[in-house]
Structure formats: C-alpha cells, structure tokens
C-alpha cells in the first residue's frame, strides 16, 4: 500500500468516529476534522450524511445567521461536532481561554467560542488536538471553557465521545468521567503514551494499533475530500498531496 502522511492517518481516524452520524458540523480552525467529515460523508454514500462547515458558502445551508448552528444543536439537529483545546484534562474539561490565573494570564488563547454550549448539547463531541504532550493533556485545566461532565440536574444530552491526538485515540467514559486509551498510532506504545500524557487514563482491554488508511480511503482524501476542504482551508488543502 502507498505511504500516507500523519495528517491522512488522523483524517481517517476521525472519519471512523463519525459512523452513522446524520449531521456533522465543523467549527472554526478545524481543517483536519473538516476533511474527516467530508471523508465520512463520501464513504456513507454521499447523500445520507449532512456536513456543515462554518465559514463555507458551499457546505453551509444556514440562512438565519450565526445563531442557527446553536439553535440547531439545542434542538438535537446536530449529531457530531469537534472541539480542540489549549489544554484538555483527564475529566474531559477543555480550556480555550488561556494559561495562568485568570484574568492575569501568562498565555492568552483566542477564547471559548461556542464550546460552553455545544459541548452540552451535541451528542458526539470529538476532541481533537494534534499535539500530544504533558503541556496540552494536563491533570487539571487552568480555565474550564466547557466541562467534560455535568451534575445530573443539568440538561446535558451531549458531551465528549473521544479524543484524537497525533499519537493515539481515547474513548471517554461519561459515567466515570475518564478517558480510556483505545488505539495507538503507529510507532507508539502504552508506555510512550503514558509518558506524553499529563492525566491518568484507563486502558481498554483490546488496545491495538490504529489502522492505517487503505488505498480507497487515500484516494478519497487526495481527491474529493481535498477539493471540498480547499474552499475554507486553501493552505491546508494545498499541503495535502493530490492523487
């Protein structure tokens, strides 16, 4: 099989987490999740899965302004969404605000965007952060933009589903508020993941190697997926190789 890049591996990993999803929305600064959404759509046969990309004109049918994404999510019309984080902790809390003691931060990030809402309301939120290091995956975030779990009285149909990094895939167990290591990207071991992760996590009974994208998947990524994502992320698309 032809060689593939780490970006292509990550696109394929995330796309597999979108199986059976009816409507996936892609937020700001999310080229790899966006490509994964288009890949999942292409593999689903094209017509059964709706992909909404913020910032797109071709792949965004919202006509009621910026609020429509959030209103849709609150009604249960969005099944999957992506969040990143300057910090992510072992309870699934994400920090998009900054490092240090708020408001006197040592490092300032852009801000919480819609995380404090969509994390509660979208059933399958996939956390994605390519950098997998103790400075990103921390025991406790400095600022909770959005919490991983909520008290039972809080209306919360949504939450974290998995965490994809440049080294591994974790699943999230809501009842325990903990991540479980599910698969290792090529070249990684349980020990190397433990060394690179600042929080404690469980080990799934069947941890294997993250499967490599096959030829058909790579053809999709290098063809229609690349073309679709180029509208919003031209620089990212230019760096994906063509078929």
């Amino acid at each position: 099989m032809s060689a593939y890049s780490r970006t292509e591996l990550l696109i394929a990993v995330i796309a597999r987490l979108l199986g059976g999803v009816g409507h996936v929305a892609v937020g700001a600064s999310s080229p790899i999740p966006g490509a994964a959404a288009f890949l999942a759509q292409a593999r689903s046969g094209g017509d059964t899965m709706r992909v909404t990309v913020l910032g797109s004109r071709r792949h965004n049918d919202f006509t009621d302004g910026g609020r429509e994404l959030f209103d849709c999510a609150a009604q249960g019309r969005i099944d999957a969404f992506f969040l990143g984080g300057g910090q992510i902790d072992g309870h699934g809390n994400v920090n998009l605000v900054g490092l240090g003691d708020y408001p006197n931060l040592d490092v300032r990030f852009p801000g919480s965007f819609g995380s404090a809402y969509l994390y509660f309301l979208v059933p399958r939120v996939i956390l994605f952060r390519e950098e997998h290091s103790p400075r990103v995956l921390v025991p406790k975030v400095d600022f909770i933009s959005a919490p991983g779990v909520s008290a039972p009285e809080v209306h919360r149909p949504g939450g974290p589903y998995g965490l994809v990094t440049g080294r591994a895939l974790f699943r999230f167990d809501k009842s325990r508020a903990r991540f479980g290591l599910a698969s290792l990207h090529p070249g990684e071991t349980v020990a190397s993941i433990k060394a690179a992760t600042g929080f404690e996590f469980d080990l799934a009974p069947d941890i294997g190697e993250t499967p490599a994208p096959d030829g058909a998947t790579l053809s999709l990524i290098r063809g229609p997926v690349r073309d679709a994502i180029a509208e919003v992320y031209p620089r990212f698309a230019a760096n994906l190789r063509s078929d």
Binding site: A74, V97, A116, L121, P147, H155
Partner: peptide
C-alpha cells in the same frame, strides 16, 4: 435564559 454554560468558568468570571 440559556442552557449549557453551567460548570464553565465563564459563569464564575
């Protein structure tokens, strides 16, 4: 009124 937000430090600040 809004849903979400509860448990976020946004509510604290």
């Amino acid at each position: 009124p809004s849903r979400g937000i509860i448990g976020s430090d946004l509510l604290r600040v």
